[in-house]
């Protein structure tokens, strides 16, 4: 999850789904599940530009997740959750 969000952020927070699929190196079926999970979790949002051209960008929650990622992992490890 962190890697996918990082790809979007490092792409100036504006990326096409097909480019994200390629860069994330996942199978298309896995990417589809993963993508809808990120979307329903509110980590990413879809933006439509021009002639139905879809782009993906991080939401505030997505940015906060990336900032707090290390802290979340460290907390889970510390308390053996």
């Amino acid at each position: 999850m962190q890697d996918t969000l990082k790809i979007i952020r490092d792409n100036r927070n504006f990326i096409k789904p097909t480019v994200l699929l390629r860069k994330s190196k996942m199978s298309s079926s896995r990417f589809k599940d993963y993508y809808s999970e990120l979307l329903s979790g509110g980590f990413i949002k879809e933006i439509t530009r021009g002639k139905n051209e879809r782009f993906i960008s991080l939401t505030d929650k997505g940015f906060r997740f990336l900032e707090r990622y290390k802290m979340i992992i460290s907390f889970i490890e510390e308390f053996e959750l």
Partner: peptide, 17 residues
């Protein structure tokens, strides 16, 4: 104090904790 970490991660272990 752990609300934000859970809101961001939705991690089950954190929820039960």
């Amino acid at each position: 104090g752990t609300k934000e970490l859970y809101d961001l991660s939705s991690y089950k272990g954190l929820k039960y904790f």
